[in-house]
Amino acid sequence: MKQVFLSYTFRALIVATVFSFFSSCSDDHAPTAPDTTKTGAIVLEFDNVAGDDEFTFNKEYTNAAGEKFTTTILKYYISNISLVTTSGTVYTVPQDNSYFLVDESVPTSTKVKLSNIPEGDYKEVRYTIGVDSVRSTMPIEKRQGALDMSGQGKDMYWDWNSGYIFFKMEGSSPAINEVENNFRFHIGGFGGYSAQTINNIKTVTLSMGTTPATVRSDIAPEVHILADILRVFSGNKTIELAKNPSYMFSRSSVDIANNYMNMFSFDHVHNDAAHSH
């Protein structure tokens, strides 16, 4: 994430420069009223962090149980995105275009760009962590893009039970007293085809506070969302890697999902012009 961090600093400099030239425009003028017959774009940036630190692979962090750990894989599905305006109108991204795999190892994947969004002042974003149960039982032709098991989704699918892995995190910890001190979280479970089983589909609602994301045909706001991976280990239940380093398709995987559903927080939104990103 260091690169991204630097680019932020750089971007902040640019923004500051722009402000110094056009401060009266930026500060005093709200954007024009939304014209809902027009559309624009919005970017949801998922910035993985570890507490107050930027998150990066192979860097050591400490979980709530006091165990040090490093990470080598981190990816998760974000799907079924909807946006709510300040007046309460909900815009739902068409389902076929609403599946994204955020993969820490693929920098471009952390920015989810949504196009053809009606102009509006959006105050809230809602999404699913994982893949909804309806899509999870859809035929192969409905599994494109992030859901293509021979493409982006190749390591995010259990072929023996036709289920997507919603959230995958792997790494190692000296606290794990095994020959290989690796931990593996492969969390999924959409509820089952014909018989009920675990359902780890989680939904997230984030308020953007007092500054809405003002989508206009010429303004593509960037909503900066933090994903605190330390929260994977605590909140609902404190995870001790020493006790169990492996959470896959099992009842106990629910503990991890109930933790990570609270790892997202809204940080800030960029509405202003220089949207070169």
Partner: peptide, 26 residues
């Protein structure tokens, strides 16, 4: 065990299983 509910999705498992064909879809 009835793990897969769609014939089209069935073949992925034997192709990828480490003790069957041990290949990846890509």
């Amino acid at each position: 065990d009835g793990g897969v509910g769609d014939l089209d999705l069935f073949a992925i498992n034997p192709i990828q299983a480490h003790n069957e064909m041990d290949e990846t879809l890509p």
